[in-house]
Design a binder for these strands. Sequence first.
DNA 1: AACCATCTATAACATAGGTTAAAGGGAGAG
DNA 2: CTCTCCCTTTAACCTATGTTATAGATGGTT
Lengths: 264, 264
Amino acid sequence: MNRPLAYTPSTPLGRKLCSYMVLTDEERNFLSELERNVTRLPARADLLQQGERYGTVRVMRDGWAIRHKALPDGRRQVVNFVLPGDIIGFYCNLFETADHGVTTLTPVEVASFSPDRIIELFKRFPRLAAALAWSGAKEEAIIAERLLSVGRRTALERTAHLIVELLKRLSLVGLADGGRFILPVTQEILADALGLSIVHINRTLRRLRDIGLIEVAGQQITVNDDKQLSSVGQFDELYLHLIRAPKRLEHALEQAPDRNRAIP
Amino acid sequence: MNRPLAYTPSTPLGRKLCSYMVLTDEERNFLSELERNVTRLPARADLLQQGERYGTVRVMRDGWAIRHKALPDGRRQVVNFVLPGDIIGFYCNLFETADHGVTTLTPVEVASFSPDRIIELFKRFPRLAAALAWSGAKEEAIIAERLLSVGRRTALERTAHLIVELLKRLSLVGLADGGRFILPVTQEILADALGLSIVHINRTLRRLRDIGLIEVAGQQITVNDDKQLSSVGQFDELYLHLIRAPKRLEHALEQAPDRNRAIP
DNA sequence: AACCATCTATAACATAGGTTAAAGGGAGAG
DNA sequence: CTCTCCCTTTAACCTATGTTATAGATGGTT
Protein backbone atom coordinates (compact mmCIF):
# COMPACT_ATOMS: atom_id res chain seq x y z
CA MET A 1 0.00 0.00 0.00
CA ASN A 2 2.24 2.73 -1.13
CA ARG A 3 -0.14 4.75 -3.24
CA PRO A 4 0.42 8.40 -2.44
CA LEU A 5 -1.99 9.14 0.36
CA ALA A 6 -2.38 12.62 -1.05
CA TYR A 7 -4.55 11.38 -3.88
CA THR A 8 -6.47 8.48 -2.43
CA PRO A 9 -7.49 8.94 1.17
CA SER A 10 -8.42 5.69 2.83
CA THR A 11 -11.73 7.00 4.07
CA PRO A 12 -14.85 6.68 1.92
CA LEU A 13 -15.84 10.26 2.65
CA GLY A 14 -12.43 11.61 1.75
CA ARG A 15 -12.44 9.55 -1.41
CA LYS A 16 -15.82 10.93 -2.34
CA LEU A 17 -14.82 14.55 -1.86
CA CYS A 18 -11.54 13.92 -3.65
CA SER A 19 -13.54 13.13 -6.74
CA TYR A 20 -14.89 16.67 -6.65
CA MET A 21 -11.69 18.58 -6.03
CA VAL A 22 -8.09 18.43 -4.92
CA LEU A 23 -7.87 18.48 -1.14
CA THR A 24 -5.20 20.28 0.84
CA ASP A 25 -3.31 18.42 3.55
CA GLU A 26 -5.16 20.34 6.18
CA GLU A 27 -8.52 19.40 4.74
CA ARG A 28 -7.52 15.80 4.41
CA ASN A 29 -6.39 15.70 8.01
CA PHE A 30 -9.61 17.22 9.23
CA LEU A 31 -11.66 14.68 7.29
CA SER A 32 -9.71 11.68 8.47
CA GLU A 33 -10.01 12.95 12.01
CA LEU A 34 -13.78 13.01 11.53
CA GLU A 35 -13.73 9.37 10.55
CA ARG A 36 -11.44 8.29 13.34
CA ASN A 37 -14.15 7.04 15.65
CA VAL A 38 -15.44 3.87 13.99
CA THR A 39 -18.22 1.57 15.19
CA ARG A 40 -19.45 -1.76 13.85
CA LEU A 41 -23.08 -2.75 13.95
CA PRO A 42 -24.97 -5.87 12.86
CA ALA A 43 -27.66 -6.01 10.20
CA ARG A 44 -31.10 -4.71 11.16
CA ALA A 45 -29.80 -2.28 13.72
CA ASP A 46 -31.24 1.22 14.02
CA LEU A 47 -28.66 3.91 13.42
CA LEU A 48 -31.31 6.51 14.02
CA GLN A 49 -34.90 6.28 15.13
CA GLN A 50 -37.68 8.47 13.84
CA GLY A 51 -38.50 11.02 16.55
CA GLU A 52 -35.15 10.58 18.25
CA ARG A 53 -33.11 13.58 19.25
CA TYR A 54 -30.03 13.87 17.08
CA GLY A 55 -26.77 13.21 18.82
CA THR A 56 -24.07 12.35 16.35
CA VAL A 57 -23.29 12.63 12.68
CA ARG A 58 -22.34 9.41 10.93
CA VAL A 59 -20.53 8.40 7.80
CA MET A 60 -21.21 4.99 6.31
CA ARG A 61 -17.83 3.37 5.71
CA ASP A 62 -18.97 -0.09 4.78
CA GLY A 63 -22.30 -1.82 4.35
CA TRP A 64 -25.84 -0.81 3.43
CA ALA A 65 -28.62 0.96 5.28
CA ILE A 66 -31.99 2.49 4.47
CA ARG A 67 -33.47 5.85 5.34
CA HIS A 68 -37.16 5.38 5.95
CA LYS A 69 -40.25 7.17 7.22
CA ALA A 70 -43.26 5.52 8.79
CA LEU A 71 -46.88 6.38 9.36
CA PRO A 72 -48.45 5.80 12.79
CA ASP A 73 -50.21 2.68 11.53
CA GLY A 74 -47.00 1.07 10.33
CA ARG A 75 -47.04 1.79 6.63
CA ARG A 76 -43.51 2.64 5.69
CA GLN A 77 -41.67 4.37 2.85
CA VAL A 78 -38.00 3.83 2.19
CA VAL A 79 -36.68 7.24 1.23
CA ASN A 80 -33.22 6.24 0.09
CA PHE A 81 -30.50 3.65 0.31
CA VAL A 82 -27.38 4.60 2.23
CA LEU A 83 -24.26 3.25 0.54
CA PRO A 84 -20.59 3.41 1.55
CA GLY A 85 -19.31 6.97 1.54
CA ASP A 86 -22.75 8.43 2.22
CA ILE A 87 -23.32 10.72 5.15
CA ILE A 88 -26.20 9.99 7.46
CA GLY A 89 -28.27 13.03 8.16
CA PHE A 90 -25.56 15.55 7.54
CA TYR A 91 -27.64 18.67 7.51
CA CYS A 92 -30.45 16.98 9.30
CA ASN A 93 -28.18 16.86 12.27
CA LEU A 94 -28.83 20.53 12.48
CA PHE A 95 -32.43 19.67 13.32
CA GLU A 96 -33.78 18.98 16.75
CA THR A 97 -35.36 15.62 16.13
CA ALA A 98 -35.17 13.07 13.36
CA ASP A 99 -38.11 12.95 10.98
CA HIS A 100 -36.90 9.63 9.61
CA GLY A 101 -35.16 6.47 10.75
CA VAL A 102 -32.01 4.82 9.48
CA THR A 103 -31.66 1.05 9.73
CA THR A 104 -28.81 -1.19 8.63
CA LEU A 105 -29.40 -3.91 6.05
CA THR A 106 -26.03 -5.58 6.44
CA PRO A 107 -23.38 -5.47 9.10
CA VAL A 108 -21.90 -2.00 8.81
CA GLU A 109 -18.95 0.06 9.78
CA VAL A 110 -19.82 3.67 10.55
CA ALA A 111 -17.76 6.60 11.73
CA SER A 112 -19.39 8.99 14.20
CA PHE A 113 -18.57 12.51 15.21
CA SER A 114 -20.14 15.43 16.99
CA PRO A 115 -22.40 17.88 15.13
CA ASP A 116 -20.13 20.61 16.44
CA ARG A 117 -17.59 19.44 13.94
CA ILE A 118 -19.97 20.48 11.18
CA ILE A 119 -20.11 24.01 12.44
CA GLU A 120 -16.35 23.94 12.73
CA LEU A 121 -16.14 22.64 9.20
CA PHE A 122 -18.26 25.49 7.88
CA LYS A 123 -16.09 28.02 9.63
CA ARG A 124 -12.67 26.61 8.87
CA PHE A 125 -13.12 24.79 5.57
CA PRO A 126 -15.48 26.59 3.22
CA ARG A 127 -14.36 24.42 0.34
CA LEU A 128 -15.32 21.26 2.18
CA ALA A 129 -18.59 22.87 3.19
CA ALA A 130 -19.39 23.65 -0.43
CA ALA A 131 -18.40 20.17 -1.54
CA LEU A 132 -20.61 18.61 1.11
CA ALA A 133 -23.41 20.93 0.08
CA TRP A 134 -22.96 19.66 -3.44
CA SER A 135 -23.20 16.08 -2.35
CA GLY A 136 -26.25 16.90 -0.25
CA ALA A 137 -27.88 18.36 -3.32
CA LYS A 138 -27.18 15.13 -5.15
CA GLU A 139 -29.03 13.21 -2.50
CA GLU A 140 -31.99 15.54 -2.80
CA ALA A 141 -31.97 14.96 -6.55
CA ILE A 142 -32.11 11.21 -6.01
CA ILE A 143 -35.09 11.56 -3.69
CA ALA A 144 -36.88 13.82 -6.16
CA GLU A 145 -36.34 11.24 -8.87
CA ARG A 146 -37.77 8.54 -6.61
CA LEU A 147 -40.79 10.79 -6.07
CA LEU A 148 -41.23 10.92 -9.84
CA SER A 149 -41.00 7.13 -9.95
CA VAL A 150 -43.50 6.50 -7.22
CA GLY A 151 -45.85 9.20 -8.44
CA ARG A 152 -45.78 8.63 -12.15
CA ARG A 153 -44.05 5.44 -13.23
CA THR A 154 -45.82 2.06 -13.41
CA ALA A 155 -44.66 -0.77 -11.18
CA LEU A 156 -42.58 -2.30 -13.96
CA GLU A 157 -40.97 1.02 -14.83
CA ARG A 158 -40.21 1.91 -11.22
CA THR A 159 -38.64 -1.40 -10.49
CA ALA A 160 -36.48 -1.31 -13.59
CA HIS A 161 -35.52 2.26 -12.75
CA LEU A 162 -34.44 1.42 -9.22
CA ILE A 163 -32.33 -1.51 -10.35
CA VAL A 164 -30.54 0.65 -12.88
CA GLU A 165 -30.04 3.39 -10.31
CA LEU A 166 -28.50 1.02 -7.81
CA LEU A 167 -26.32 -0.53 -10.48
CA LYS A 168 -24.96 2.89 -11.42
CA ARG A 169 -24.45 4.06 -7.87
CA LEU A 170 -22.74 0.85 -6.86
CA SER A 171 -20.51 0.83 -9.94
CA LEU A 172 -19.35 4.27 -8.90
CA VAL A 173 -17.96 2.94 -5.63
CA GLY A 174 -16.69 -0.28 -7.14
CA LEU A 175 -19.41 -2.50 -5.73
CA ALA A 176 -20.86 -3.73 -9.00
CA ASP A 177 -19.14 -5.51 -11.81
CA GLY A 178 -20.40 -6.43 -15.25
CA GLY A 179 -23.98 -5.63 -14.39
CA ARG A 180 -23.88 -7.89 -11.37
CA PHE A 181 -24.33 -6.77 -7.79
CA ILE A 182 -25.51 -7.89 -4.38
CA LEU A 183 -28.80 -6.41 -3.25
CA PRO A 184 -28.98 -7.15 0.46
CA VAL A 185 -32.65 -6.44 0.63
CA THR A 186 -35.87 -8.38 1.16
CA GLN A 187 -38.75 -7.90 -1.22
CA GLU A 188 -40.57 -6.18 1.60
CA ILE A 189 -37.96 -3.43 1.63
CA LEU A 190 -38.03 -3.18 -2.14
CA ALA A 191 -41.78 -2.80 -1.89
CA ASP A 192 -41.43 -0.05 0.69
CA ALA A 193 -38.92 1.74 -1.50
CA LEU A 194 -41.17 1.65 -4.54
CA GLY A 195 -44.54 2.26 -2.91
CA LEU A 196 -45.81 -1.18 -3.94
CA SER A 197 -47.10 -4.22 -2.09
CA ILE A 198 -44.77 -7.10 -1.47
CA VAL A 199 -46.84 -9.37 -3.68
CA HIS A 200 -46.73 -6.97 -6.56
CA ILE A 201 -42.98 -6.51 -6.32
CA ASN A 202 -42.69 -10.23 -6.58
CA ARG A 203 -44.87 -10.28 -9.70
CA THR A 204 -42.92 -7.42 -11.19
CA LEU A 205 -39.50 -8.98 -10.61
CA ARG A 206 -40.82 -12.13 -12.16
CA ARG A 207 -41.88 -10.20 -15.24
CA LEU A 208 -38.45 -8.64 -15.52
CA ARG A 209 -36.95 -12.12 -15.22
CA ASP A 210 -39.36 -13.55 -17.78
CA ILE A 211 -38.53 -10.85 -20.28
CA GLY A 212 -34.90 -11.77 -19.69
CA LEU A 213 -33.78 -8.34 -18.54
CA ILE A 214 -32.47 -9.46 -15.18
CA GLU A 215 -31.48 -12.63 -13.38
CA VAL A 216 -31.90 -13.14 -9.67
CA ALA A 217 -29.93 -15.66 -7.63
CA GLY A 218 -30.45 -15.12 -3.94
CA GLN A 219 -29.35 -11.58 -3.26
CA GLN A 220 -27.33 -11.36 -6.43
CA ILE A 221 -28.88 -9.41 -9.25
CA THR A 222 -27.54 -9.63 -12.77
CA VAL A 223 -28.61 -7.06 -15.29
CA ASN A 224 -28.50 -8.77 -18.64
CA ASP A 225 -29.43 -5.88 -20.86
CA ASP A 226 -28.90 -2.57 -19.18
CA LYS A 227 -29.83 -0.57 -22.27
CA GLN A 228 -33.24 -2.17 -22.43
CA LEU A 229 -33.72 -2.08 -18.68
CA SER A 230 -32.91 1.63 -18.68
CA SER A 231 -35.38 2.17 -21.44
CA VAL A 232 -38.12 0.27 -19.61
CA GLY A 233 -37.46 2.42 -16.55
CA GLN A 234 -37.16 5.59 -18.64
CA PHE A 235 -33.89 6.04 -16.88
CA ASP A 236 -31.99 9.24 -17.58
CA GLU A 237 -28.86 9.43 -15.51
CA LEU A 238 -28.90 13.21 -15.56
CA TYR A 239 -30.31 13.31 -12.04
CA LEU A 240 -27.41 11.37 -10.58
CA HIS A 241 -25.10 14.22 -11.56
CA LEU A 242 -22.31 11.76 -12.09
CA ILE A 243 -19.93 14.18 -13.72
CA ARG A 244 -17.25 15.50 -11.43
CA ALA A 245 -17.87 18.90 -10.00
CA PRO A 246 -18.98 21.36 -12.64
CA LYS A 247 -16.25 23.58 -13.95
CA ARG A 248 -17.61 26.53 -12.09
CA LEU A 249 -17.41 24.87 -8.69
CA GLU A 250 -14.15 23.15 -9.44
CA HIS A 251 -12.53 26.36 -10.47
CA ALA A 252 -13.73 28.31 -7.50
CA LEU A 253 -12.77 25.57 -5.11
CA GLU A 254 -9.45 24.51 -6.48
CA GLN A 255 -7.66 27.48 -5.10
CA ALA A 256 -6.32 27.05 -1.63
CA PRO A 257 -8.90 28.23 0.89
CA ASP A 258 -8.46 31.95 1.34
CA ARG A 259 -7.93 31.89 5.04
CA ASN A 260 -7.07 35.55 5.28
CA ARG A 261 -9.80 36.58 2.97
CA ALA A 262 -8.70 39.46 0.82
CA ILE A 263 -12.12 39.76 -0.77
CA PRO A 264 -13.37 43.36 -0.45
CA MET B 1 -42.26 52.16 8.24
CA ASN B 2 -39.80 52.95 10.92
CA ARG B 3 -39.20 49.53 12.34
CA PRO B 4 -35.47 49.16 12.88
CA LEU B 5 -34.14 47.73 9.65
CA ALA B 6 -31.64 45.79 11.71
CA TYR B 7 -34.30 43.32 12.79
CA THR B 8 -36.58 43.06 9.81
CA PRO B 9 -34.82 43.12 6.51
CA SER B 10 -37.14 43.90 3.66
CA THR B 11 -36.04 40.93 1.60
CA PRO B 12 -37.83 37.61 1.98
CA LEU B 13 -34.53 35.75 2.10
CA GLY B 14 -33.10 37.99 4.76
CA ARG B 15 -36.29 37.68 6.75
CA LYS B 16 -36.11 33.92 6.52
CA LEU B 17 -32.52 33.72 7.72
CA CYS B 18 -33.24 36.25 10.44
CA SER B 19 -35.64 33.78 11.93
CA TYR B 20 -32.75 31.40 12.43
CA MET B 21 -30.19 33.76 13.90
CA VAL B 22 -29.16 37.34 14.46
CA LEU B 23 -27.47 38.72 11.37
CA THR B 24 -24.52 41.10 11.42
CA ASP B 25 -24.64 44.28 9.36
CA GLU B 26 -22.13 42.80 6.97
CA GLU B 27 -24.22 39.70 6.43
CA ARG B 28 -27.34 41.74 5.97
CA ASN B 29 -25.67 43.91 3.40
CA PHE B 30 -24.40 40.94 1.49
CA LEU B 31 -27.87 39.40 1.41
CA SER B 32 -29.63 42.51 0.29
CA GLU B 33 -27.04 42.94 -2.41
CA LEU B 34 -27.91 39.45 -3.62
CA GLU B 35 -31.52 40.44 -3.95
CA ARG B 36 -30.83 43.71 -5.68
CA ASN B 37 -31.45 42.48 -9.20
CA VAL B 38 -35.20 41.91 -9.38
CA THR B 39 -37.24 40.62 -12.32
CA ARG B 40 -40.98 40.25 -12.79
CA LEU B 41 -42.50 37.41 -14.76
CA PRO B 42 -46.09 36.49 -15.66
CA ALA B 43 -47.85 33.30 -14.62
CA ARG B 44 -46.97 30.12 -16.47
CA ALA B 45 -43.48 31.24 -17.32
CA ASP B 46 -40.53 28.87 -17.06
CA LEU B 47 -37.95 30.03 -14.58
CA LEU B 48 -35.88 26.99 -15.39
CA GLN B 49 -36.29 24.25 -17.94
CA GLN B 50 -35.43 20.63 -17.35
CA GLY B 51 -32.17 19.89 -19.15
CA GLU B 52 -31.19 23.54 -19.30
CA ARG B 53 -27.74 24.65 -18.30
CA TYR B 54 -27.83 26.56 -15.06
CA GLY B 55 -27.04 30.23 -15.32
CA THR B 56 -28.33 32.11 -12.35
CA VAL B 57 -29.52 31.53 -8.83
CA ARG B 58 -32.93 32.91 -7.98
CA VAL B 59 -34.84 33.86 -4.89
CA MET B 60 -38.62 33.96 -5.01
CA ARG B 61 -39.68 37.31 -3.58
CA ASP B 62 -43.34 37.21 -4.40
CA GLY B 63 -45.68 34.69 -6.00
CA TRP B 64 -45.86 30.94 -6.43
CA ALA B 65 -44.04 28.49 -8.62
CA ILE B 66 -43.66 24.72 -8.92
CA ARG B 67 -40.60 22.54 -9.20
CA HIS B 68 -41.43 19.64 -11.45
CA LYS B 69 -39.91 16.70 -13.27
CA ALA B 70 -41.28 15.11 -16.41
CA LEU B 71 -40.96 11.78 -18.19
CA PRO B 72 -40.31 11.70 -21.94
CA ASP B 73 -43.94 10.80 -22.62
CA GLY B 74 -45.26 13.81 -20.75
CA ARG B 75 -46.24 12.33 -17.39
CA ARG B 76 -45.22 14.87 -14.81
CA GLN B 77 -44.55 15.01 -11.09
CA VAL B 78 -44.60 18.22 -9.13
CA VAL B 79 -41.76 17.92 -6.66
CA ASN B 80 -42.49 20.96 -4.55
CA PHE B 81 -44.16 24.32 -4.39
CA VAL B 82 -41.90 27.36 -4.36
CA LEU B 83 -43.22 30.04 -2.03
CA PRO B 84 -41.95 33.54 -1.26
CA GLY B 85 -38.58 33.43 0.46
CA ASP B 86 -37.64 30.11 -1.13
CA ILE B 87 -34.47 29.76 -3.10
CA ILE B 88 -34.66 28.20 -6.53
CA GLY B 89 -32.05 25.55 -7.02
CA PHE B 90 -29.60 26.89 -4.52
CA TYR B 91 -27.26 23.95 -4.38
CA CYS B 92 -28.51 22.64 -7.64
CA ASN B 93 -26.93 25.63 -9.21
CA LEU B 94 -23.71 23.88 -8.51
CA PHE B 95 -24.79 21.25 -11.05
CA GLU B 96 -24.17 21.42 -14.74
CA THR B 97 -27.71 20.96 -15.97
CA ALA B 98 -31.11 21.11 -14.37
CA ASP B 99 -32.81 17.78 -13.68
CA HIS B 100 -36.08 19.57 -13.06
CA GLY B 101 -38.05 22.55 -14.28
CA VAL B 102 -39.46 25.50 -12.40
CA THR B 103 -42.62 27.19 -13.66
CA THR B 104 -44.52 30.11 -12.23
CA LEU B 105 -48.14 29.72 -11.18
CA THR B 106 -48.80 33.40 -10.58
CA PRO B 107 -47.05 36.56 -11.67
CA VAL B 108 -43.85 36.56 -9.67
CA GLU B 109 -41.06 38.77 -8.55
CA VAL B 110 -37.69 37.02 -8.41
CA ALA B 111 -34.21 38.19 -7.59
CA SER B 112 -31.35 36.73 -9.59
CA PHE B 113 -27.65 36.55 -8.96
CA SER B 114 -24.60 34.74 -10.21
CA PRO B 115 -23.68 31.32 -8.81
CA ASP B 116 -20.27 32.78 -8.06
CA ARG B 117 -21.90 34.62 -5.22
CA ILE B 118 -22.63 31.29 -3.59
CA ILE B 119 -18.98 30.37 -3.56
CA GLU B 120 -18.23 33.80 -2.22
CA LEU B 121 -20.86 33.30 0.43
CA PHE B 122 -19.33 30.02 1.55
CA LYS B 123 -15.93 31.63 1.84
CA ARG B 124 -16.86 34.89 3.48
CA PHE B 125 -19.98 34.05 5.49
CA PRO B 126 -19.83 30.59 7.02
CA ARG B 127 -22.80 31.40 9.24
CA LEU B 128 -24.95 32.26 6.26
CA ALA B 129 -23.71 29.16 4.51
CA ALA B 130 -24.74 27.01 7.47
CA ALA B 131 -28.11 28.72 7.70
CA LEU B 132 -28.74 28.16 4.01
CA ALA B 133 -27.67 24.55 4.42
CA TRP B 134 -30.22 24.26 7.17
CA SER B 135 -32.94 25.63 4.99
CA GLY B 136 -31.88 23.32 2.17
CA ALA B 137 -32.22 20.38 4.53
CA LYS B 138 -35.74 21.54 5.34
CA GLU B 139 -36.64 21.42 1.69
CA GLU B 140 -35.27 17.91 1.41
CA ALA B 141 -37.39 16.92 4.40
CA ILE B 142 -40.50 18.27 2.67
CA ILE B 143 -39.75 16.25 -0.45
CA ALA B 144 -39.17 13.11 1.59
CA GLU B 145 -42.51 13.61 3.29
CA ARG B 146 -44.18 13.99 -0.09
CA LEU B 147 -42.55 10.74 -1.13
CA LEU B 148 -44.11 9.09 1.91
CA SER B 149 -47.47 10.56 0.89
CA VAL B 150 -47.33 9.45 -2.68
CA GLY B 151 -45.90 6.05 -1.81
CA ARG B 152 -48.00 5.13 1.19
CA ARG B 153 -50.96 7.42 1.83
CA THR B 154 -54.35 6.98 0.16
CA ALA B 155 -55.67 9.68 -2.13
CA LEU B 156 -57.80 11.18 0.62
CA GLU B 157 -54.95 11.17 3.11
CA ARG B 158 -52.47 12.68 0.67
CA THR B 159 -54.78 15.43 -0.36
CA ALA B 160 -55.61 16.32 3.23
CA HIS B 161 -51.93 16.22 4.08
CA LEU B 162 -50.95 18.58 1.29
CA ILE B 163 -53.62 21.08 2.20
CA VAL B 164 -52.47 21.13 5.80
CA GLU B 165 -48.85 21.44 4.71
CA LEU B 166 -49.58 24.41 2.49
CA LEU B 167 -51.67 26.02 5.20
CA LYS B 168 -48.81 25.74 7.68
CA ARG B 169 -46.15 26.92 5.27
CA LEU B 170 -48.23 29.85 4.12
CA SER B 171 -49.13 30.86 7.67
CA LEU B 172 -45.44 31.02 8.39
CA VAL B 173 -44.95 33.75 5.80
CA GLY B 174 -48.21 35.51 6.60
CA LEU B 175 -50.09 34.32 3.52
CA ALA B 176 -52.84 32.43 5.28
CA ASP B 177 -55.30 33.66 7.79
CA GLY B 178 -57.83 31.79 9.87
CA GLY B 179 -57.41 28.61 7.87
CA ARG B 180 -58.07 30.44 4.63
CA PHE B 181 -55.63 30.79 1.77
CA ILE B 182 -55.40 31.21 -1.97
CA LEU B 183 -54.22 28.16 -3.86
CA PRO B 184 -53.32 29.44 -7.33
CA VAL B 185 -53.35 26.01 -8.82
CA THR B 186 -55.45 24.00 -11.27
CA GLN B 187 -56.59 20.54 -10.32
CA GLU B 188 -54.19 19.22 -12.93
CA ILE B 189 -51.26 20.59 -10.97
CA LEU B 190 -52.64 19.23 -7.73
CA ALA B 191 -52.93 15.86 -9.42
CA ASP B 192 -49.33 16.05 -10.59
CA ALA B 193 -48.21 16.94 -7.08
CA LEU B 194 -50.02 14.02 -5.51
CA GLY B 195 -49.45 11.37 -8.13
CA LEU B 196 -53.15 11.11 -8.91
CA SER B 197 -55.32 11.61 -11.98
CA ILE B 198 -57.15 14.85 -12.41
CA VAL B 199 -60.49 13.10 -12.15
CA HIS B 200 -59.56 11.45 -8.91
CA ILE B 201 -58.33 14.67 -7.36
CA ASN B 202 -61.69 16.13 -8.18
CA ARG B 203 -63.49 13.22 -6.50
CA THR B 204 -61.22 13.50 -3.50
CA LEU B 205 -61.69 17.24 -3.04
CA ARG B 206 -65.40 16.66 -3.28
CA ARG B 207 -65.21 14.08 -0.51
CA LEU B 208 -63.30 16.50 1.70
CA ARG B 209 -65.96 19.12 0.98
CA ASP B 210 -68.77 16.65 1.65
CA ILE B 211 -67.31 15.68 5.00
CA GLY B 212 -67.18 19.39 5.73
CA LEU B 213 -63.45 19.57 6.34
CA ILE B 214 -62.75 22.18 3.68
CA GLU B 215 -64.58 24.71 1.58
CA VAL B 216 -63.53 25.69 -1.90
CA ALA B 217 -64.49 28.93 -3.59
CA GLY B 218 -62.53 29.48 -6.75
CA GLN B 219 -58.91 29.45 -5.72
CA GLN B 220 -59.72 30.13 -2.13
CA ILE B 221 -59.48 27.19 0.22
CA THR B 222 -60.94 27.34 3.69
CA VAL B 223 -59.94 24.73 6.20
CA ASN B 224 -62.88 24.35 8.54
CA ASP B 225 -61.47 21.82 10.94
CA ASP B 226 -57.72 21.69 10.80
CA LYS B 227 -57.46 19.19 13.65
CA GLN B 228 -59.58 16.69 11.82
CA LEU B 229 -57.98 17.43 8.46
CA SER B 230 -54.56 16.86 10.00
CA SER B 231 -55.73 13.62 11.45
CA VAL B 232 -57.14 12.44 8.12
CA GLY B 233 -53.80 13.23 6.51
CA GLN B 234 -51.86 11.76 9.42
CA PHE B 235 -50.08 15.06 9.49
CA ASP B 236 -47.21 15.39 11.92
CA GLU B 237 -45.54 18.75 11.55
CA LEU B 238 -42.22 17.38 12.78
CA TYR B 239 -40.91 17.23 9.24
CA LEU B 240 -41.44 20.92 8.63
CA HIS B 241 -38.91 21.66 11.37
CA LEU B 242 -40.78 24.81 12.22
CA ILE B 243 -38.93 25.55 15.42
CA ARG B 244 -36.29 28.20 15.04
CA ALA B 245 -32.79 26.91 14.65
CA PRO B 246 -32.00 24.27 17.24
CA LYS B 247 -30.08 25.53 20.21
CA ARG B 248 -26.94 23.86 19.02
CA LEU B 249 -26.88 25.67 15.71
CA GLU B 250 -28.11 28.92 17.16
CA HIS B 251 -25.42 28.91 19.77
CA ALA B 252 -22.66 28.09 17.37
CA LEU B 253 -23.83 30.68 14.90
CA GLU B 254 -24.71 33.54 17.14
CA GLN B 255 -21.15 34.50 17.73
CA ALA B 256 -19.76 36.94 15.23
CA PRO B 257 -18.10 35.03 12.41
CA ASP B 258 -14.56 34.27 13.51
CA ARG B 259 -12.89 35.94 10.62
CA ASN B 260 -9.42 35.48 11.98
CA ARG B 261 -10.05 31.96 13.08
CA ALA B 262 -8.22 31.23 16.28
CA ILE B 263 -9.35 27.60 16.22
CA PRO B 264 -6.32 25.32 16.52
C1' DA C 1 -31.76 -34.32 11.12
C1' DA C 2 -35.67 -32.09 12.32
C1' DC C 3 -37.46 -27.58 13.68
C1' DC C 4 -38.57 -22.88 13.45
C1' DA C 5 -38.55 -18.44 11.57
C1' DT C 6 -38.28 -15.78 7.72
C1' DC C 7 -38.53 -15.23 2.78
C1' DT C 8 -40.27 -16.17 -1.83
C1' DA C 9 -43.73 -17.55 -4.94
C1' DT C 10 -48.41 -18.04 -6.84
C1' DA C 11 -53.32 -18.10 -7.09
C1' DA C 12 -57.88 -16.08 -6.48
C1' DC C 13 -60.30 -12.35 -5.52
C1' DA C 14 -61.22 -7.25 -4.21
C1' DT C 15 -60.76 -2.33 -4.89
C1' DA C 16 -58.64 2.21 -5.31
C1' DG C 17 -57.78 4.85 -8.64
C1' DG C 18 -57.31 5.51 -13.94
C1' DT C 19 -59.69 6.47 -18.42
C1' DT C 20 -62.97 8.13 -21.50
C1' DA C 21 -66.64 10.94 -22.41
C1' DA C 22 -69.65 14.59 -22.01
C1' DA C 23 -72.02 18.33 -19.75
C1' DG C 24 -71.64 22.65 -17.20
C1' DG C 25 -69.12 27.11 -15.39
C1' DG C 26 -66.41 31.51 -15.91
C1' DA C 27 -63.53 34.83 -17.59
C1' DG C 28 -61.12 37.31 -21.11
C1' DA C 29 -61.36 38.74 -26.32
C1' DG C 30 -63.60 40.61 -29.76
C1' DC D 1 -73.15 40.25 -25.38
C1' DT D 2 -71.58 35.96 -26.87
C1' DC D 3 -67.80 33.20 -28.37
C1' DT D 4 -64.04 30.76 -27.13
C1' DC D 5 -61.03 28.38 -24.30
C1' DC D 6 -59.90 26.33 -20.31
C1' DC D 7 -61.28 24.51 -16.18
C1' DT D 8 -64.37 21.72 -13.13
C1' DT D 9 -67.64 18.19 -12.36
C1' DT D 10 -69.84 13.79 -12.82
C1' DA D 11 -70.91 9.27 -14.70
C1' DA D 12 -69.70 4.70 -16.45
C1' DC D 13 -66.53 1.60 -17.09
C1' DC D 14 -61.79 -0.53 -16.75
C1' DT D 15 -57.32 -2.12 -14.95
C1' DA D 16 -53.20 -1.98 -12.19
C1' DT D 17 -52.27 -2.99 -8.00
C1' DG D 18 -53.64 -4.48 -3.22
C1' DT D 19 -55.28 -8.39 -0.09
C1' DT D 20 -55.69 -12.79 1.71
C1' DA D 21 -54.28 -17.27 1.78
C1' DT D 22 -51.30 -21.08 1.23
C1' DA D 23 -47.40 -23.71 -0.21
C1' DG D 24 -42.40 -23.98 -0.98
C1' DA D 25 -37.51 -22.46 -0.16
C1' DT D 26 -33.88 -21.32 2.69
C1' DG D 27 -30.96 -21.11 6.47
C1' DG D 28 -29.83 -20.95 11.22
C1' DT D 29 -30.39 -23.62 15.83
C1' DT D 30 -30.87 -27.36 18.81
